[in-house]
Design a protein around this nucleic acid. Sequence first.
RNA 1: GCCCCCGUAGCUCAGCGGAUAGAGCACCGGCCUCCGGAGCCGGUGGCGCAGGUUCGAGUCCUGCCGGGGGCACCA
Length: 570
Amino acid sequence: MSSLYHTLETRLRQAFDALSPGADPVLRPSERADFQANGALGLAKVLGQSPREVASLVVATLDISDLGEIEIAGPGFINIRVDAAVMGERLRLLLDDERLGSAPREPRRVVIDYSAPNVAKEMHVGHLRSTVIGDCLARVHRFVGDTVIARNHVGDWGTPFGMLIEHLIDLGEADAIASLSVGDLDSFYRAARFKFEGDETFRERSRARVVALQGGDPETRRLWQLLVDQSVAYFSEVYAALDVLLTPQDVVGESSYNDQLEAVVEDLDRQGLLVESHGAQCVFPPGFAGRDGEPQPLIVRKSDEGFGYAATDLAAVRDRVSRLGANEIYYVVGAPQVQHFQMIFAVARLAGWLPDSVHCEHVAFGSVLGPDRKMFKTRSGETIKLSALLEDATDRARTELAQRRPEQSSTEREALARDVARAAIKYADLSTDRQRDYVFDLDRMISAEGDTGPYLQYAHARIRAVFRRAGQEVPRGVTPTIAEPAERALALGILAWPDAVSAALSSSQPHRLCGYLFDLAQRFSTFYEECPVLSAPDDIRDSRLVIIELTARILALGLSLLGIAAPEQM
RNA sequence: GCCCCCGUAGCUCAGCGGAUAGAGCACCGGCCUCCGGAGCCGGUGGCGCAGGUUCGAGUCCUGCCGGGGGCACCA
């Protein structure tokens, strides 16, 4: 079954098509009716008739008598009011549909590149957005039936590993592992950096170690692997704490492409795309200019013969298309990298590695800002650890819960506090247009009322509470009656679920989903005030139980796509 | 210098070329003999500026102002 919106749009499209092939009905939700089609106004000029005339021509060939009523209003809006019985019937059908009306699509193979922390470095707020947004997109794509291949492109290669390995040797393996396993990666990194900057012999050892690493020296590789493994284990802890689906199997770091870099360069050279400039091997994709107005190079191989991250990214594109068979590739990486990815995609297309049939997109996002609207840092100017952020939020949630639910057991409260904390942080991150920067404000996202993750969880928990009190499950075989305005509004909200999913999917914008869920929760709250459920006569009570059951299911399902839990009680 | 993103209510944000620009927070006023008040109902308050395209512009185009970011070997 397609969504109500989709059904109507298809009918309208046919009617518009008869007048002007391919014309868009411009169907929108309406405040004056249930839906309004604005397409007639735009067609008027083309057809040389008045908008109202066009609208009546459309209406003449439009048969939706099985769905609702049509009215031409104002200058030429086609207003549609859906029959209550139609809505009731659709709601009844949804009760047996785990997907709540959102049909799976033709499955696609989708690679999503996200999170990408650095080995031997702490995960900090800078990784929050990539991780949370990428995780949400992965869940949404899986939900619509796609095969999702998550790629955690961790920074596990490059010159810093010389000093990191030497530092590891200085500490001794056992001590090094111990210090890394407590999750204090930054102090390990800082100590290495400190020696590198202050100690000439250490610097020399580090340089030699990089050469050994790149040369494939087994002992060096073993030590490097230790660093990687320890870090990945730590990342996994953070992902678990965040309730993010990434696993160690998804880690395909920069080093994974090492043995393909040579081939990338050769292939570019063979195709005549490679140009030497200032000793570096470059590709100059058309349309990119640098500071001086000169063409901007993508440096594939540095003048010291080393490979830059462009080479790695090119190898990754190639691999994802040719070996993984991706139909779609998403890079959930910060907005400052736009130009880099534009160039990577341009070169990959030039080289024929990225056919037009493969959709490749940089899912760019803005920065997390502090209260001062600058990059979110601690007062002393240090980056904020993701784990610390979560702990803070959990503390706040725990305090809040202790006040509201003093009777809760501490184990119960602890689990809830974590769910609420994650909801607060993730929802705040996902609910704004990802392209923009946003201000991190724990007060607002966790303890405030309003458009927050906890509010959505609360709405869901209230519904579950009704069923607990009712002492029954949702009645089967009931066709809801849509009578009250608040019922109607809520029903329309429920029936719009598939549209919210596809909006979020096609735009890679989780905030479309958030906005929908918040709207649904508000519709429910209004309904809840105005339409008694348990005290209503039996038939109305059953009808309303169905309506709120569907609401709760959508809230839970929607939250799950955001990576947020929907507890039964709060 | 060039390029990209962003300027919407006091604050944080929605707004897919369409009717009277919406939420949340804050503020003011209502609502618990009634299913969870982290709630509901009502009110105050706004599209940076100037042009243009369009029947219609917060939305598209140009310029300006303001903020952020990027522009050759660190990823």
